[in-house]
Design a protein around this nucleic acid. Structure first.
Length: 463
RNA sequence: GAGGCUAUAGCUCAGUUGGUUAGAGCGUCGGUUUGUGGUUCCGAAGGUCGUGGGUUCGAGACCCAUUAGCCUCCCCA
């Protein structure tokens, strides 16, 4: 018999872990609701054609495909055909409906776009939705990277106002403030600035090449980026221009002014700069001065997903070595992929598994989150058990989370169970308590114990 | 897709240049204690050393293959 295991890159969540995860979910949900977003859920699987081609070549490779199970090829010719399809399937990341026509969801944005198109006539636009569900990627797992992980997304579709961008920035900053995450930087940039950058380098066609190289600035440094740019065929004047641009420093407004000068010949760059200015101005009005995170214009921020067209954002926590914990941006024509034109959207995503890892690593989960507040009634059997059950029922009616040890086993064993369960209170009701119509309430944290009436005990537990 | 590391008890790991019966800590169970846990003390159970082959008088250790996990690059949350 082989030892049981779970698929690579997936995890079980213990009771304490689930509580801690729920703490994050609940924090985010409260904020989404407060900002007027509505909940949405979509299926774990989508038609493969919905997903293919939306995440770039690399993304297509990482989609988990679901094998068709109703294969009843009876004729030899059909079996032959299936074999051919298999060969294609294994060599290319393309759809071969005979073998697979469904796939696990890769992110929450594309399914959302699909939903909006399908339900366009019932929705009130601008439509604001949040969604918290698992997604799957056939990636190679490593630190902070899983094959099954959860995303929490908030998107607004059907409005081009930059108020939306500003609100989403506020949601980010509010969330990381509420979660007490230190050293959070929300980086903001615009695809239009990147397009402008390519334009002033006389390499408009190579915007992706430039941004991909530039995105690695943090990791490989300027020398590395120069190498990449040369390799991708950017000439020296272009590289000099890029050097000039990434050397821009100062406050956000100082950066934007400098970029305005450098890229003054590019209409699209100027448009991007204006959008960033307006977004920042809206954000300034909406923000809360207590938020500790930093909002930083970063021209080197690229982001891979190729459907972004306007403002893009990414969140990192500099207190730990970890990839980004959130990202998002404006996509002008996401629903156009499914036939609905002129429907601009903008959204952000929280990578809650990474956020969990960061909070855990920094030991920032509030203490009471992991255990919950629970009361255990010990069981002495017979008359005492009947009396105990009666108390249990009264506790629950009063809204107290309580359980009784179901078996009348040795006192010591029940106490050890209580300890392992990390309960906050233990209630002891033996002959003595029963005859006095009282109970002994033991605070399991302090070890203090007193003889009380049921009402008194409830008051203390709820206090 | 490229590269590196690891695999020994339920968990975390020791195990010397290859040499008798493979160890520790934690955990589990039992006792100390059948109305007081988390602390002490005593005891017990638990391993064909990932799998297959090879070298050797002899392999947990060395070699080859294989599988799984972890990590880095790529890319991403």
């Amino acid at each position: 018999m082989s030892k049981p295991s779970i698929p690579q890159g997936t995890r079980d969540f213990s009771p304490a872990e689930v509580r801690k995860r729920q703490y994050i979910f609940n924090t985010l949900q409260a904020i989404f609701e407060q900002y007027g977003f509505q909940p949405l859920e979509t299926p774990a699987m989508e038609n493969l054609t919905t997903l293919i081609g939306k995440y770039g070549e690399e993304g297509d490779r990482l989609i988990f495909k679901i094998l068709n199970n109703g294969l009843h090829e009876k004729k030899d010719a059909d079996k032959e055909k299936l074999n051919e399809e298999w060969a294609t399937m294994l060599s290319k990341p393309y759809n071969t409906p005979k073998v697979t026509e469904r796939a696990l969801r890769y992110d929450l944005t594309i399914p959302f776009a699909r939903y909006v198109v399908m339900h366009q006539h019932e929705l009130a636009f601008p439509f604001r939705r949040y969604q918290m569900q698992p997604v799957w990627r056939a990636d190679r797992p490593q630190k902070g990277r899983y094959r099954e992980f959860w995303q929490c997304d908030a998107d607004v579709v059907g409005s081009t106002s930059l108020i939306n961008e500003a609100e989403l920035l506020c949601i980010y900053r509010r969330a990381f403030h509420d979660l007490n995450l230190p050293q959070v930087v929300v980086k903001i940039n615009s695809r239009k600035l990147l397009a402008g950058l390519a334009e002033v380098c006389n390499a408009s066609e190579q915007m992706m090449d430039i941004t991909i190289a530039l995105d690695k600035l943090d990791k490989i440094g300027w020398d590395g980026v120069t190498g990449e740019l040369k390799q991708r065929g950017i000439n020296d004047t272009g590289i000099a221009k890029i050097a000039e641009i990434i050397n821009v420093t100062g406050t956000n407004e100082e950066k934007l002014s400098a970029l305005e000068q450098i890229m003054s010949t590019s209409a699209v760059a100027l448009e991007g700069i204006k959008e960033l200015r307006d977004t920042l101005a809206y954000h300034d009005t909406l923000k809360d001065g207590n938020w500790s995170s930093e909002l930083m214009v970063d021209i080197s921020l690229a982001r891979g997903l190729n459907y972004y067209t306007g403002v893009i954002v990414e969140v990192v926590c500099n207190a730990v070595k970890m990839g980004s914990i959130g990202g998002g941006g404006r996509y002008d024509d996401l629903t156009g992929l499914f036939g609905l034109k002129n429907m601009s959207g903008v959204g952000v995503s929280f990578g809650i598994d990474r956020i969990y890892d960061v909070i855990e690593e920094l030991n920032l989960f509030p203490e009471e989150v992991a255990s919950g507040k629970q009361t255990l009634i010990l069981n002495f059997g017979g008359e005492d058990e009947r009396y105990a059950l009666n108390i249990l029922q009264q506790l629950r009616n009063a809204g107290v989370s309580a359980e009784i040890y179901p078996d009348s086993v040795k006192f010591d064993k029940q106490m050890k169970y209580a300890n392992k369960r990390n309960v906050t209170y233990v209630i002891i009701v033996g002959e003595e308590e029963r005859k006095a119509n009282k109970l002994s309430l033991k605070n399991f944290v302090t070890g203090e114990q007193e003889l009380l009436s049921i009402e008194e005990a409830i008051n203390i537990i709820q206090g």
